[in-house]
Design a protein around this nucleic acid. Sequence first.
DNA 1: AAAATACATTCATGTTTGTCAATATTTATA
DNA 2: TATAAATATTGACAAACATGAATGTATTTT
Lengths: 105, 105
Amino acid sequence: MENNIYMDTAKLFKVLSDPVRLQIVDLISCREMCACEILEYLSITQSTLSHHMKVLKECGLVNSRKDATWMNYSLNSDFVIEFKTTLDKITSDTEECLCKKKIKV
Amino acid sequence: MENNIYMDTAKLFKVLSDPVRLQIVDLISCREMCACEILEYLSITQSTLSHHMKVLKECGLVNSRKDATWMNYSLNSDFVIEFKTTLDKITSDTEECLCKKKIKV
DNA sequence: AAAATACATTCATGTTTGTCAATATTTATA
DNA sequence: TATAAATATTGACAAACATGAATGTATTTT
């Protein structure tokens, strides 16, 4: 409720908790790709890919750019950096802690 | 199937895709804590916490050490580092890519 | 031995989600 | 305009999961 930093971060982890979406992120991390090219690397239907791209876009991880009939997707690098920073804060004791635990160390 | 690196990583993301488990990781990232102390910070039942700790332990993220009636939990730092390395590989174009995408750049 | 404390397990339930088939929409081409 | 190609949306369903109540187990204390 009050600590929605955990809820927000959990949603991002949920987006990445699918092997197909991880492979998609891996694919477009080097360069922009249209959906039909991404589809060539995967063994899923076109509608399933479209669903995954929607999920990846809606959370902010992926950018999209329309070019005629093609929809080009690329990784939002700034978003990835921010996500990794949050992960560092949650897992490290050198960063500023999100909870009040340091008081009792 | 053949690329179970994505499946393995997805399972870890799934473990972290829960706000309660994220808060638990945040809590024990500074120091070891017993279950009853962790429970004080959360608004869940004891059985639910036990379930979460089992999930965190089984994937390797959390270590446990029994002391009399207390079960002490701590974060497996090496595991966290390895996990972050995998995340870097998937999201970065400077690391060695997991897929064959670089060929076609 | 009995009571209390700390934690784990089992069971049941409502919710979320990944998937595909079918259909719709948009744009380019013939 | 008609057809084809690329992508999105809808609907349905099975599997996975988070949760709490009830119960079980282990250890300490009285």
